[in-house]
Structures are given as structure tokens and as C-alpha cells.
Design a protein around this nucleic acid. Structure first.
Length: 241
DNA sequence: CGCTTTTGACCGGCGC
DNA sequence: GCGCCGGTCAAAAGCG
């Protein structure tokens, strides 16, 4: 794990924040896995933060972003088995007094540092090739690509697809030079959302999946909100007393 | 039937 | 200018 932490420049995208996560296939985002009062309190706090972040003008935070924010706020050792609820717990435990907002700020700061240059382009891999004009070159109509925050992280997993709570549609796959494994391209299926991600296995260590997110979701995480609703109902019930 | 995945083609940027 | 490479498109196939 530590051998991955901090980003191995050979496969990290230069200038991108880079996170190493060692885990088996990731479980679904926070579900009802509360076993003690303390845990419940922490999880509730974290979920409230997530909810407040979603309800603010700030872009909603998905589990991936929360995890990223958590790693950004302070270095920490992730457990061998990554659980979204645990990540959210840690986010709440490590967060400053106004956790939701500051976490979001941390994400923004993180993303602002993610290698964007003055043109809003991102310092991409191996020479900053960031085109994305569209295959036929008509989508952008000669315009430069809009500012797209990006970050990448590694996951040790047998599955290429990480369940991050969002729905993705695959729109391409390319063989990558110097790698036996192809790179897959995904887009968020939400109609108003233009977030993309790339998934690729490391050539050096094929058990490691490198996921690169591009952009910020402009809609709540469906699974997260699904998980939140019963807890929020419970909160409403408890607040009556 | 609608959505997703697959896959070959196409395009633009970069290096030589 | 040319070739390589990465990213995207879009038609066809697959799936529930």
C-alpha cells in the first residue's frame, strides 16, 4: 500500500492528485452497516456532511470525491478493505469544524491543483495530450475544451469497474502503447452530467486498476442518496423529541 | 424495446 | 509533411 501512496510517477498522470487504494472489489457506497452507537454517530455525521455538500451550491460529492477529499485533508493509512461508509466516517473524524463545506473546499483546492493550466486544459499524461475534441472533431466545433478538473487513483482490484455510486456508459476502448491491457472510456449516464473516467490496468502490476476521473458530477450520487434517505428519515423522527 | 457494450473508423495534436 | 498515438464517434450486436 505504501508503495503506491504518493503516486508512482511512471503510471500516475503528471500533475494529477493521485490516490492509492488497496482493496478487493469495492462494495456499494454507504449502506446500513452500523454496528455501534459511535459508528452510527460518525456515519451519520459523515452522511450529513455529504448531504449538506450535495445541497449546497457546491458540486455534490460522490464517494470517490469524499475519499479523495479525505486523503487530501490529511495523509492516512487506508484499511486493506475499503468501505465507503468507513471512508465517510474518516472524513467526518478528520474534518474541520464546518466539515461539509471544508471538505468540499478541500476537493476544490485539490482539483484546482490538479494540473490545469491557464487555458483550462489539464496537464495530461506524457506531454499533455488533452484533446477530446470528439472523434469527428465536430462536437467542440474548434472550441477549446472547457475547464475539466481531473484526478486519478489506483485500486487493487480484480474488477476493472469500481462501484462509485454513479452510473457509467462505456463509449470506447483503446489499446495503449506499452501496456497489454486496453484503456476503457466511460461517461456518466446522467443526461446533464458530462463527467468522464478512464480505467486502465497497470502494465507493471495488472492487479492494480488506475481510474482517472475528469470533471465534477452536477447531480447527486444516486446510490448515496438512496442510502441517505432512511437515515435522514430517522433523523427527522429523532428531531421531534 | 431501450439501454449498454463492442469495435472499427475518424480526427487532431505532437514529435521527428 | 508524415506517422504515431490518444480520444471520440457511431453503427451493430448483445442483453434484460
Amino acid at each position: 500500500m505504501e508503495n503506491l501512496q504518493g503516486g508512482d510517477e511512471s503510471h500516475a498522470l503528471p500533475g494529477f492528485p493521485y490516490f492509492a487504494v488497496t482493496s478487493p472489489p469495492l462494495p456499494a457506497p454507504p449502506s446500513c452497516c452500523l454496528s455501534s452507537d459511535d459508528q452510527q454517530h460518525s456515519t451519520l455525521t459523515a452522511l450529513q456532511q455529504a448531504a449538506s455538500a450535495c445541497n449546497d451550491n457546491l458540486p455534490p460529492l460522490g464517494p470517490d470525491q469524499l475519499a479523495a477529499a479525505t486523503t487530501a485533508v490529511a495523509p492516512m493509512i487506508l484499511p486493506p478493505v475499503v468501505d465507503w461508509s468507513l471512508l465517510l466516517q474518516q472524513a467526518s473524524l478528520m474534518a474541520p469544524p464546518v466539515p461539509g463545506l471544508q471538505q468540499a473546499a478541500a476537493v476544490h483546492q485539490l482539483l484546482d491543483q490538479s494540473g490545469e493550466n491557464d487555458d483550462g486544459e489539464v496537464a495530461g499524461s506524457s506531454g499533455g495530450k488533452e484533446k477530446a475534441k470528439g472523434g469527428a472533431g465536430r462536437s467542440a466545433a474548434g472550441k477549446k475544451k472547457a475547464s475539466r478538473p481531473r484526478f486519478a487513483f489506483q485500486t487493487r482490484s480484480v474488477n476493472d469497474i469500481l462501484d462509485d455510486g454513479y452510473r457509467w456508459r462505456k463509449y470506447g476502448q483503446k489499446a495503449v502503447k506499452n501496456s497489454a491491457h486496453p484503456r476503457s472510456y466511460y461517461r456518466c449516464t446522467h443526461h446533464t452530467c458530462n463527467v468522464k473516467k478512464q480505467v486502465q490496468r497497470l502494465a507493471k502490476d495488472t492487479s492494480i486498476v488506475v481510474t482517472t476521473y475528469e470533471g465534477v458530477h452536477n447531480h447527486p450520487c444516486e446510490k448515496l442518496m438512496e442510502a441517505l434517505s432512511p437515515i435522514l428519515k430517522q433523523l427527522q423522527f429523532l428531531s421531534q423529541f
